[in-house]
Computed example of a mutant assay.
Amino acid sequence: MSKMSRLEMIKSFAEQEPNNPFNWYALALEYKELEPQKAGEYFIKLLQEFPEYLPTYFQAANFFAESEQLQTAKETFLKGISLAKQQNDSNTLRELKNSYSNFVFEYDIEED
């Protein structure tokens, strides 16, 4: 009996528990290197369907920045920073703020 690949296993979890955002998050991360376009679709799904799932924002914002989708990256960083404040998650807030500062500097983005 062959072992199920990691990707197939995560897909199976997502199908079995479609309301668990972690499964979609894991799929997005898994696809980041394999098929970036598919990863982007999963990040968008997460941001739209599970907007309270804070872990998405750091990974998604950086993914969009690396994909040269700078406006989407900026919006994702700012929404994540706002959500981290609402959820009183100081560690994630610090990570997002630091990453956002680097993003603004690296891509010469106009801050609001």
Rank of each mutant, 00 (worst) to 15 (best):
E68F: 15
E68G: 15
Q69G: 06
L70S: 02
Q71L: 13
Q71G: 09
Q71N: 13
Q71A: 13
A73D: 10
A73M: 03
E75V: 01
E75L: 14
E75G: 01
T76C: 04
T76R: 02
F77Y: 05
F77Q: 05
F77E: 06
L78W: 12
K79D: 11
G80I: 05
G80A: 15
G80P: 11
I81E: 14
S82V: 14
L83V: 04
L83M: 00
L83C: 01
A84Y: 04
A84K: 00
A84H: 03
K85Q: 06
K85F: 05
K85P: 04
K85Y: 02
Q86N: 14
Q86T: 07
Q86E: 08
Q87I: 06
Q87K: 01
Q87V: 02
Q87N: 12
Q87E: 10
N88C: 04
N88Q: 03
N88F: 03
N88L: 09
D89K: 02
D89Y: 08
D89E: 10
S90C: 10
N91T: 15
T92M: 08
T92A: 11
T92W: 04
L93K: 06
L93C: 06
R94C: 15
R94F: 14
E95F: 14
E95C: 10
E95M: 03
L96R: 04
L96N: 03
K97A: 05
K97R: 12
K97W: 09
N98F: 07
S99H: 10
S99E: 12
S99C: 08
S99T: 11
Y100C: 07
Y100D: 07
Y100K: 03
N102A: 12
N102G: 09
N102E: 14
V104H: 09
V104M: 02
F105S: 13
E106M: 01
E106D: 12
E106A: 02
Y107I: 09
Y107V: 08
Y107P: 07
Y107G: 02
Y107K: 05
Y107R: 08
D108G: 08
D108N: 02
D108V: 08
I109K: 02
I109C: 11
I109G: 06
